[in-house]
Each structure stands twice: as C-alpha cells, then as structure tokens.
Amino acid sequence: MTIPAGSLLALDNVYGGYGGVDILRGVTMTVQPGEIVVIIGPNGAGKSTSMKAAFGLVNVREGRVAFEGRDITNWRADRLVKLGMGFVPQEHNVFPSLTVQENLEMGAYLNPKGMRARMDKIFGIFPRLAERRRQAAGLMSGGERQMVAMGRALMAEPRMLLLDEPTAGLSPLFIEQTFERVVEINKLGIGILMVEQNAKQALAIAHRGYVLAMGENRFEDTGPNLLANREVAELFLGG
C-alpha cells in the first residue's frame, strides 16, 4: 500500500517494537485532517505501541510513517513537534515541580512568540487551569493533570494530537469531561489519534476507529459502525 494522498498521519505496514521483538506486525492506519480516530483492542494488542511508533518513540523496523505526506519514520520527537505533531503520554505527563503555567510554557518552548495569547486560548478550553496556574502540577488530581498535559501539547499549536489513554484512571465525571474537551480541541481543526480503554464512549465521539489485536489490524470502520458491529462488540467492547 502507498500512503494515501491528503492524509494527516499515515502508518503504512509498520513492523517494530522495543529491543529485538516486534510488537507491531504490519499495522496500517491513517488520520485525515479534522478527524478523530480511535484505536481500541485488548491488552497487548499494540495500541499504544502504534502511537509511539508514529511519534518516533518505538523503533520502526519496517514500513513507513508519514505526516502530511512527508516521511517521518523514526524521527526524533523534537523534530516532530516542530513539524506540527503533539503527543500526550498516558503516565507521567506533567512536570510535577513546575507550576501549571510553567508546564504550558514548556509546550511553547520551540516557538515562544505569541505565547500569552495561546495560553489564554487554552485557559478558555480548560478554565480550571487558569484558576490553578500558580500551583505545582504534581499536586493536582489525575483529571486536572490530564488537562495540563493536553494544554501543554496544544501550546505548540499542533495540527495533529496523539493521546495515549487520556481517560485512564479517571472518575466517570472526568472521563466525560475529557471526551468533551477532545471534541472541542478537534473542532479547532486539530486531527486526533487516540488510544482508549473506554472504547464505547471513545467510539461515540470518533469519526473512525481501528481495532487492533496481536499487533495487527483486525477491523476498521466509522465509529457508529464499529459500535454496531456484533463481532467487535463481543470481542472488544465487553458484550
């Protein structure tokens, strides 16, 4: 397969993993501009690994990764940020000893011009962060930390955001709020690729989804179709 024209992000038949063992065995996926795409699947399916392979954090042994048509296979993270990609890790995704505001400033490290205006925009999306701007991020709740982490990634003005299980460990209320924020961020024109355990809720807001198993593509369809797919429901959505 070749990289489809006009795609924002594309993984083309990617093999790779940590050390010598391949976790990904031919993963292929695309994100079109303006889309929310969700990756679901059982534990060990290679969901997070696919995302990390896209962001140069996992060695891609074979296959290609492209951003806006440009080959970025195995690029270093700071180059990808410069190019317009943002990544929010699942854990340890804030700088605990820095304040909320300093965390956001770090997001604009490569491009500090007009930082204030961008920060105000992010405080508009996450009003809670404006209230807590001088607090150390390490002292915040899991849900608030997730907001700091997303805000930090948005400070670099990405056109594509990779979110690794943004709702992991959050209370139901925060899970709902997080998904609402994801939709809001997407409406700014930012493409989103998201790995999620809360598959039903995630597919409900997604344009498309991929189901991975054993490091390979299993299903690929629109969000509603995957939700309605009986096989997917039985295997991966818990009935």
Partner: peptide, 19 residues
Amino acid sequence: KAMRAMSDNMDLARVTGIN
C-alpha cells in the same frame, strides 16, 4: 525552566519539543 523540566522528567521534556 527547561532545566527544571528535564530534571523532573527527561522523556516528557523530549516529547514536549525541548532540545
């Protein structure tokens, strides 16, 4: 601030775009 950030979490500093 970037020094403090790297001292907190080097991996996160890298994915944040800090050289």
